[in-house]
Design a protein around this nucleic acid. Structure first.
Lengths: 136, 136
DNA sequence: GTAGCTGCAAACTCTTTGCAACTCT
DNA sequence: AGAGTTGCAAAGAGTTTGCAGCTAC
């Protein structure tokens, strides 16, 4: 994934066995795993990994912007590799997370911030919905 | 505030002294107080109030939709009386919370959800910015 | 060799909860 | 009277951290 490992070593991080495993787990994830989930997947590859290391690593990666931390309306965080910018729609029934992008939205939020006299540094947009049932 | 007390008693809640105080604190708040802040303000009016009651009351009010719970990028919740619908821009330097409304945005998020095959039930939009310094 | 990393367990923060006493209605 | 509410303290959940030993560089 645009070599995560490389970006870490370039940043001066030691490439320990644990970090390699965690990076691999993140790179291969097609969902938005929680710390617990990353931990379980990592443990499957190296059973000695502790959850403290997972927390520490994810925090590091977040600070380096290699990873994006999401705090949906749940009481824990989820992570994903920081690739393209997008937003999320959370299916309230299944918990499934759907990604989407929208150009109008990008413009709009920038414009709103500017009109209020602010530079937009960060933002958060999440939609929570229920699948529309087709009538038969 | 469109009588919070009345809306509570109508819903069958007992109007205890503690609840009156908490409702008054919420009604008078012009900011987005945390549980801790609501607790402190309430305690100033009735020192016997416990924080457990504040938590319980805010949860009740949230379920009844009398209040809106916000979880900005902080590790605690903030509350405000549910009046008009709006969004928030958080000043990353001062922590100040600025409210705004935007019609285009309302349409857009509805449209995005529908295009993805979802009924929009809830959402969250927060902007995080830094005040633009005028050049002299 | 050594700065940085790790596992473990304890500590922390915010929030919830069991229980016995109390209080609106 | 009695269901609902409260304060207290303990428990929960997720996350962070101090420390001694280990490891990549």
């Amino acid at each position: 994934m645009t070599d995560l490992v490389e970006r870490c070593t370039n940043a001066g991080l030691k490439m320990t066995g644990q970090r390699k495993v965690i990076l691999r787990v993140l790179g291969e994830a097609e969902d938005h795993p929680s710390v617990e989930t990353v931990y379980e997947r990592a443990k499957a590859q190296d059973s000695s990994i502790s959850i403290a290391t997972v927390y520490r690593t994810l925090n590091l990666l977040d600070e380096m912007d290699l990873v994006v931390r999401h705090e949906f309306k749940e009481n824990f965080s989820r992570y994903e590799v920081n690739m393209d910018h997008h937003h999320h729609l959370i299916d309230l029934e299944s918990g499934e997370v759907i990604e989407f992008q929208n150009e109008d939205l990008e413009e709009l939020k920038e414009r709103i911030a500017n009109e209020l006299g602010y530079d937009l540094i960060d933002h958060r947009l999440e939609l929570y919905g229920r699948k529309i049932k087709k009538k038969k």
